[in-house]
Design a binder for these strands. Structure first.
Lengths: 348, 348
DNA sequence: TTGAAAGCGCTAACAA
DNA sequence: TTGTTAGCGCTTTCAA
């Protein structure tokens, strides 16, 4: 079996409490051991290759040094999804830097609200980072109730006590649309994301605001209920191309990059060149936005940073430090690439 | 504080051991409790919202129900990398299905061999899935030594005792090259992956085998030491385009999809159309292979399945079941898309 | 400066 | 069918 603190104590000829004291000798604690015994203990520990059992330690201290990361369990959210990917990278980076570990949890099933709440009370994690695309999670409510440290990412809530990390989706929608307007487009479609996801609505609001501000009246057909997947963009494009010529948009602001890729592909199949005949804007600006052809103009969402910040805030919470701010809305900006251009002459 | 087994026992008017017995009442165990007390206990537990503390349980049972997943800590390996992404998806799927949890570890630093071995002895995980691109890991040696359950993914070793999950890289290299030969290419370049990574060499071997079998003598300049990143393909392409006309290849077999994307981009910038003037083959066939333009012909590696299988094998190991096989080499196949075509007339 | 001992919440052997 | 009890490996009072 593994070597325990007792073995070390025995070899060093001291008590277990002395060993414990020496090995937990973090700065600030008052030293209660003489240098001589300290050396003997260190020597013995080294000789035996002793490593404390974190399970036992956690049981008594009530702290584990592990953070839980929860994604909604939809294949779409863990698989083939650069968004989750980058959130995770950011979280992981911070977690590793701070000497924590990361545990992956999941809300089984597609009902993002009904995450198994047993998971919350799991004493194996000190706190939870919840990626909660749908608003008003009962999980969050529970965390608040029992004061379990938690921070929610892409989560919309009225409750100012809940720690949230969001990006400015409305401004993002505005920027995308405004960019197209400035290029001279007047017939601009917006492919709206999954309505269950809380980022979909604000982006639409931003679109509407930009249109209104430019004195443009969007046709109802231009606001297509699509979704965040590649296929959603693909089929929505097919639908929009059915519109009579005078109603057909010259630009499409897609729900996200994946969706935009579907748009581009559908257009390519129809022989409609991007951006000459149709401009396309994505959202998220994930790493593959620069890999499409043409490279995608996209609203940059600081996803990696959001993950990192989420971990930072959670760690502060866990360690009982004051957090300067509970709710963050990170800025977005537009990354212009080659998928947008002025509208074709005959259409403008 | 959280409600404990004692609270439940008290409320139900029984002993803690009865509660423990009822709550661990997994099929197969002989029941030691009368139906009446069973009901009382269940009722009490429900009423109190009792959930057992996994920490305490693990401390005594020696099992945690958590698997560790270790990637080499290189940003390239967790960030922007569809490969790790898909491995993780596969692992996660299986882990969730089997009621396990997943903990993410990392080998800090770029030295993939010197993973912090304390991590291994971590009693918080029942076993380890190690993604170990470089051969002969000391970590694996240590696992064998102390009989810590572990399975290695993309790991090359002579030791038949080590559980490994690999794909048939040599055959993959062969298939890619043979496909190009069948299209009529005779001047075929291969951009070799990072030599530290154990999949790079066998793919090159497959390339050489196919060439030899077709009676083709590859020029040394055609085997370019590139790498697995996008930029590696980009710069290697620039180099290869410097070759004098008669030595210049008409097809490039890239180290992986990311690399191939770099190749395509470099070619696009030079105005060389793919596949008309240059055929390109990728490797991995990750989800984004179908998103490039043109969609990429690529060797399909069953990455998701490898992750899933790794988890399956590890769980079997952890649960003390016999594993039918310790070492797996999963088959690959070629997915032909639109980045390959016969060589241009004037060149063949 | 040190060691003995209690106990974190649970399981499992043992006794009743 | 039950309850008592001894730990799992550790931290942390408390007394020496």
């Amino acid at each position: 079996m593994a070597v325990t603190i007792r073995d070390v104590a025995k070899l060093a000829g001291t008590s277990v409490s002395a060993v414990s004291a020496v090995l937990n000798n973090t700065a600030g604690r008052r030293i209660r051991v003489s240098e001589a015994t300290r050396q003997r203990i260190l020597e013995a520990a080294k000789q035996l290759g002793y490593a404390p059992n974190p399970l036992a330690r956690s049981l008594v201290t009530g702290r584990t040094g592990v953070l839980g990361l929860v994604f909604p369990y939809s294949r779409a959210f863990i698989d083939r999804n650069p968004f989750s990917d980058q959130i995770m990278s950011g979280v992981f980076e911070e977690v590793v830097n701070e000497g924590y570990n990361l545990m992956l949890h999941t809300a089984v099933g597609n009902d993002w609200n009904a995450a198994d709440e047993k998971m919350l009370l799991d004493p194996r994690v000190d706190g939870l980072i919840l990626v909660l695309p749908s608003p008003n999670s009962s999980v969050i409510a529970r965390c608040q109730e029992v004061k379990f440290p938690a921070v929610a990412v892409v989560y919309a809530t009225e409750n100012k006590q809940v720690c949230t990390i969001n990006a400015d989706d409305q401004h993002g929608g505005f920027l995308a649309t405004q960019h197209l307007i400035e290029l001279g487009h007047t017939r601009i479609a917006h492919f709206v994301g999954d309505p269950k996801v809380s980022t979909a609505q604000p982006r639409l609001q931003g679109y509407l605001k930009a249109m209104e501000q430019a004195g443009l009246q969007p046709e109802p057909e231009w606001m297509v209920q699509a979704g965040f997947d590649w296929k959603d963009g693909y089929s929505a494009t097919q639908r929009i191309l059915q519109l009579p010529k005078h109603k057909r948009p010259t630009a499409i602001f897609a729900a996200n990059d994946l969706c935009a890729e579907g748009v581009i592909r559908a257009l390519r199949e129809q022989g409609i060149p991007v951006p000459e005949q149709m401009s396309v804007v994505g959202y998220d600006d994930t790493w593959f936005a620069s890999m499409t052809n043409p490279p995608l103009t996209s609203v940059h969402m600081p996803i990696y940073e959001m993950g990192k910040l989420a971990a930072q805030v959670l760690i502060a919470l866990v360690e009982g430090r004051e957090v300067a701010q509970r709710q963050y809305t990170l800025p977005v900006h537009l990354t212009v690439r080659q998928s947008t251009a002025p509208p074709p002459k005959e259409s403008s």
